[in-house]
């Protein structure tokens, strides 16, 4: 399943790009499993996902938890907690 991954703020900085197209194996079905898989892609990814507990996720711009299923997702975003306002 080819899906677009987007990174924001310090996740984007640590990984080195804002967006990438990935093709995780079929055994990766949840956000939690996808996170583990992404963290293994490169040392930069491992560094970015090191503080995994604080990282938030959205599928197609809707907040989801680690147990959310990724089937059918077009865009999955990873980002730190919001600091606007």
């Amino acid at each position: 399943m080819i899906v677009t991954i987007r990174y924001f703020a310090w996740l984007r900085e640590r990984i080195g790009h804002a967006e990438e197209r990935v093709d995780p194996p079929a055994s990766i079905t949840t956000i939690g499993a996808l996170t583990d898989w992404l963290a293994d892609l490169s040392p930069a990814h491992a560094n970015a996902f090191a503080q995994r507990a604080v990282i938030k996720t959205a599928i197609d711009q809707q907040f989801v938890n680690a147990d959310a299923l990724i089937a059918g997702a077009h865009e999955i975003a990873f980002f730190p907690p919001f600091t606007g306002g």
């Binding site: 924001f8 703020a9 959205a58 980002f79 730190p80 919001f82 600091t83 606007g84 306002g85």
Partner: peptide, 8 residues
């Protein structure tokens, strides 16, 4: 806005 809108 501070906690629920995606700004950094």
């Amino acid at each position: 806005l501070k906690t629920d809108a995606p700004f950094w």
